[in-house]
Design a protein around this nucleic acid. Sequence first.
DNA 1: ACGATATGAATGAATG
DNA 2: CATTCATTCATATCGT
Lengths: 206, 206
Amino acid sequence: MEPQQQQQNQQQPNEDNSSGAKGSFLCRQSSTRWTPTTDQIRILKDLYYNSGVRSPSAEQIQRISARLRQYGKIEGKNVFYWFQNHKARERQKKRFTTDVPMQQRTVSNASNWKPEDYSFHNKHPNVTPGFSSASPSSAGGLTVGQMGNYGYGSVNMEKSFRDCSISASANSGVGGSMNPNYGWVGIDPYCSSYSFFGKQKSIMKP
Amino acid sequence: MEPQQQQQNQQQPNEDNSSGAKGSFLCRQSSTRWTPTTDQIRILKDLYYNSGVRSPSAEQIQRISARLRQYGKIEGKNVFYWFQNHKARERQKKRFTTDVPMQQRTVSNASNWKPEDYSFHNKHPNVTPGFSSASPSSAGGLTVGQMGNYGYGSVNMEKSFRDCSISASANSGVGGSMNPNYGWVGIDPYCSSYSFFGKQKSIMKP
DNA sequence: ACGATATGAATGAATG
DNA sequence: CATTCATTCATATCGT
């Protein structure tokens, strides 16, 4: 991410990469920690910025991780942490720079942190500028999130609108009716409690 | 092995420079990463060693960076990373030296500050013109530091167990399990218990 | 010119 | 959610 300056992107493609993008490099995944592949990152960011996913529910996490699994090894917790971190850091940086609530930043910011890819996906060197409107997925083809599943929000979405500018993703369905997309707005009658990692807890251990 | 600070100072008044290319040394090469000026380092170390600041909060970071800005370009994240790194490396270094040999560390020895480093760090002839060292209060008058002590060390946490008793089972809404943190209503069927992870981690972990 | 080291930056994983 | 720790990448700088 942060395509601005130096980036240390070097995730090793591990096995199976259906995407067939980068070459295969055998590598050291020996590390304990998950090293996301570029495709995985791409998708995660797409979900984050384009679909507005911020704190996916257990179900979503499973789905997402399942989808991402085709691009490399990944577990539910990785997805979970990814969203947590991404969100936290986005907020944090804002905190450092915008701390004082009052004060209008005339020039507004100026240089602070990395511009990152707010708004849309701007980071990948590839992806065509086109930007389709209908399908959120760029290359996957699997849409992880659009099922009619209850979205997670149901509860406090409060100010989630503050930064997420999800630009149009086709059906944002603000109007009412069910909004199939995950996101804010979904009020669902069910709690759909989750056992969440409960099921996959076994894999959750380091 | 040696001096930690071999920082080259090149404080530039402020931003600008766009040339980026470090064609000529001795210039602001601010192309990419932040290169702290000696004054900035001096102050940072002062805060670190003399004031005990290790992990400044967002607010502190704001103030610190504001203060340091008079010595050169700097942003909040730089301060943030600086402290993070400094602390981490100090710790890391110490870990190697103090760890294996004798583990007889009295706990009292919490302060592992490294006075040697500070006080007169500038070993480079390059130092900024003028500048006498001493109090950081050159022009700021801001008091960023907070106390002078910090007990650190002796925190060897390893993998402790922290299983929770409640474990997951938040079950679907109604049941009324514990974890009432969020006043769920007894009859409230719509679970909105999103506290969710508040304690969930237990299952996520060892 | 390199190689080594110091250190800024980024981020996965946890903890509270 | 906020904060912190550990690792790792990237680059600036110095030594020889």
